[in-house]
Design a protein around this nucleic acid. Structure first.
Lengths: 211, 211
DNA sequence: GAGAAATCTTGACAGTCGTCAAGATCAGCG
DNA sequence: CGCTGATCTTGACGACTGTCAAGATTTCTC
């Protein structure tokens, strides 16, 4: 009624622009955060690696924490659907496992900074109360993501997942983290190990269909 | 020849005292680090929570990083033998699994600050080259620690570990981390879940004896 | 194009940080 | 005792931090 309703729908409203800027700022910030980590990313450094000046952050975000939380939520939106294609296109259990393993390796190679940032923030949330809500929401959505893969695998295999999705997520997250560490350490074969481990693990998680 | 050899063996040498101070400093530092995390633990804060003044740190350590690395190595020495008693005393596979699960829960409750510090430092090592060597050494010794448990379980069950120790470590570490996060988030049942998951996982890792 | 509102830049503030050095305090030994 | 070297305290430094506010600039509206 005040402004948005009266605006033409084809042109963006001020509110839209505001959100656009927040997203652009978040994208810059994520680059810096992925490079330096949470602790060493200052607002000035973040702003320097963007097209904005350092004061503008406080125009769009109340404080640093709000920026970080916004970033991490923004990042989540795009990353939890990473395996949707794999789930949708796989034609057999083995095919799914294969594509899944490939995708795991691919994302470690191409998005290592984002992954280490995630583990950094999750660790920080163990110390900073104010990060916990966002982190645990994302962790839940990653759990769901893994569950979609495992459930689809079970479906294709004519079986049922044998374990609770929380355990399965924990296990995959654990070996993924080891793969990431190995990759960043330059350990030869870290990625191939991860692929083999993931592919080999899927069938272990199945139980014969009961009902 | 210069000083140590001439000293009486019953009294501590200056070099001993030096090491003693380093250890005392490390113990104080670990308390602060476990409370605040790596990023927010300043040398002044560390010194305030100890019996020393902030300048003394530079007398015993070249810089902050050397202190941190010393701390993390010192911590490792005492923690990788946490399950030695369990391994030594268990009389059957089920007994071992039971004791193992109990110990997991116990250490999360009693040593949560140390565990979150470990995950914090491991995450930092993904950004800071200079932490990687110490971290990956500790990670390896944790791998060995888990391997001792699983191997003993296999022995008691008359079976053999079905998977590489690296995978097994990754899996246990993953569910342990979830348990720690759940516990710190105050999630009801997080610890009981972890215990059940760990106990239930051990038999899954076995294969019939081959040779 | 004038005026108003939104947006952005710049510079400053009060803290904190790691590091260091000068001097105080202590221990051991002649 | 006095001397010497180890040990520790104190205070300072330059750099960096998050935050904010005053003013410049742009964008939009009439």
């Amino acid at each position: 009624m005040t402004q948005a309703a009266a605006r033409k729908a084809s042109r963006r409203t001020p509110a839209d622009k505001h959100d656009e800027r927040r997203r652009a700022l978040a994208e810059s910030a994520l680059r810096t955060l992925g490079e330096l980590g949470y602790a060493r990313s200052s607002l000035r450094e973040i702003a320097n690696n963007s097209e904005f000046s350092h004061g503008v952050v406080h125009y769009y975000f109340h404080d640093k924490l709000e920026l970080i939380v916004f970033c991490v939520r923004y990042y989540k939106e795009t990353c939890v659907h990473r395996y949707d294609g794999v789930v949708a296109e796989a034609t057999s259990p083995d095919d799914l496992a294969e594509r899944f393993g490939d995708k795991l390796v691919e994302t470690i190679v191409e998005e290592a900074p984002m992954h280490r940032l995630w583990y950094d923030l999750r660790s920080q949330s163990m110390f900073e109360e104010s990060l916990r809500e966002a982190v645990s929401q994302i962790d839940k959505s990653l759990d769901d993501m893994v569950d979609r893969i495992v459930s689809r695998y079970a479906e294709l295999a004519g079986a049922e997942p044998a374990l609770d999705s929380a355990v399965v997520y924990g296990m995959f997250d654990g070996i993924f983290q080891q793969g990431l560490l190995g990759h960043l350490n330059g350990r030869e074969g870290a990625l191939e190990d991860l692929r083999a481990q993931a592919v080999g693990m899927l069938p272990m998680l199945m139980a014969p269909k009961s009902v």
